[in-house]
Simulated assay, not measured.
Amino acid sequence: MSGQVPVIETQGLGKVYSPGTEAEVVALRDVDISIARGDFVAIMGPSGSGKSTLMNLIGCLDTPSAGTYRCDGIDVSTLDAEELAVLRRDKIGFVFQGFNLLPRMSALENVAMPLGYARVPPDERSALAHEALAAVGLSERESHRPSELSGGQQQRVAIARALINRPPILLADEPTGALDSRTGEEILALFGRLREDGHTVVIITHDPEVAAHAGRVLTMLDGELREEPRLVIGDS
């Protein structure tokens, strides 16, 4: 890993909402992060701690008020709106608690959908979507609609969709929040395998048991970040 450019790197990152007004909120303060390719990182914190703001900045869904962010070596402040959209498409796969699958589409069609925006030919879309579903263990369910799938299967479809453009970063916001504990463990194990395949996995969570699956745990509190000693499942 020595000498490699961090896939996520922030320096002095800050975010202030409604600056200079009575409603001013300092959401992030001077956040420095360096995350290498292949890291599995959990960002923890209670509601209002700033973790969602940090996720939005890492995901290029919002812009910082201060500091810099380099995504896979690219300073995002140098990009215009169209270039940011391309970076999000190519560099970041998003997974959310609510799955966000289209109900009238099959699993295969849901997974292939992002490739339509990239103008990939239909035959190639289907082949890549089949490959992505196979990677999450759902080849036999590709013709099923979301209503015909369990919660865990729907989340696997959502993960396959996030992987379809083969992004280096997988950003997951409370990905097990809508799942029972056993299914949640299966999804977290899947994230571990994706990390072994070279993906950088960042999970936003409030749950210490979820965070314990990660190799690194970063904690947000009142907009400030600190790194916790490594958690090991089963430690007393």
Rank of each mutant, 00 (worst) to 15 (best):
S2L: 11
S2D: 13
S2V: 10
G3R: 03
Q4M: 13
V5H: 12
V7Y: 02
V16P: 08
P19T: 05
P19E: 11
G20A: 11
T21H: 12
A36M: 15
D39H: 09
D39Y: 06
F40D: 03
M44R: 02
G50V: 03
S52I: 13
S52R: 07
N56F: 03
N56L: 03
N56C: 07
I58H: 02
G59L: 12
L61P: 02
T63V: 10
S65L: 14
A66K: 15
G67E: 11
Y69A: 03
Y69C: 04
D72H: 10
G73R: 08
I74E: 14
S77R: 14
E82T: 07
V86D: 15
L87E: 08
L87F: 08
G93T: 01
V95L: 11
V95K: 01
V95Y: 01
F99V: 02
N100F: 15
N100R: 09
L101P: 00
L101V: 05
A107P: 02
N110M: 02
V111G: 00
M113K: 09
A118E: 10
V120E: 13
E124Q: 15
R141I: 07
H144D: 06
R145C: 08
P146V: 00
S147L: 10
S147I: 06
E148T: 01
E148M: 07
A158C: 10
I159Y: 03
R161A: 04
R166W: 11
P167H: 03
L171V: 01
A172Q: 00
A172S: 09
A172T: 02
E174S: 04
T176G: 05
G177L: 06
E185K: 11
A189D: 14
F191S: 01
F191T: 02
L194Y: 07
E196H: 13
D197F: 12
G198E: 14
H199A: 03
T200N: 07
I203T: 12
H206N: 09
E209D: 10
E209A: 05
A211Y: 07
A214P: 06
G215W: 04
G215Y: 06
V217P: 15
V217K: 01
T219F: 15
T219M: 13
M220Y: 05
D222W: 04
L225K: 06
L231R: 13
G234Q: 05
